[in-house]
């Protein structure tokens, strides 16, 4: 009953360190938002948000310790979403007369 792969137990400490990292990144995103970087600020905000999401996903959701199959499924979903975004933007940038 108990033979298949046991998820490894990650200590309290690791999680607290990840949480501190998340807080630091939150502070970073607020500081950068206050610096009025114009176009660059959205890039930085999204990059920081992506970092935070990765931390939550990998450590809090234990994705780092999951099977290769689940990791692949996750990646496929992200690629699917990215392709939706990409295709939408192709329409917006390159098609004449998109409703505005």
């Amino acid at each position: 009953m108990n033979q298949d792969h046991h998820p490894c137990v990650i200590g309290y400490q690791t999680h607290i360190i990840i949480w501190l990292g998340l807080l630091a990144l939150t502070a970073l995103t607020i500081v950068v938002a206050g610096m009025h970087l114009k176009g660059l600020s959205i890039v930085v905000a999204l990059a920081v948000a992506a970092c935070k999401c990765s931390l939550v996903c990998l450590f809090f959701m234990h994705l780092k310790y999951e099977s290769f199959f689940l990791k692949t499924l996750f990646l496929v979903t992200i690629l699917l979403l990215a392709s939706f975004i990409g295709l939408t933007y192709i329409d917006i940038f390159f098609r004449e007369g998109v409703m505005k």
């Binding site: 938002a33 959205i42 905000a45 999204l46 948000a49 999401c53 959701m61 234990h62």
Partner: peptide, 25 residues
């Protein structure tokens, strides 16, 4: 318990994106 946790973290992840996009622009 683990599954409820996964759901809860997803909610957190979505907020991580909502926060800079609505409150910090």
């Amino acid at each position: 318990l683990e599954n409820c946790g996964l759901y809860w973290h997803l909610v957190d992840m979505i907020w991580i994106f909502l926060f800079p996009l609505y409150y910090l622009i």
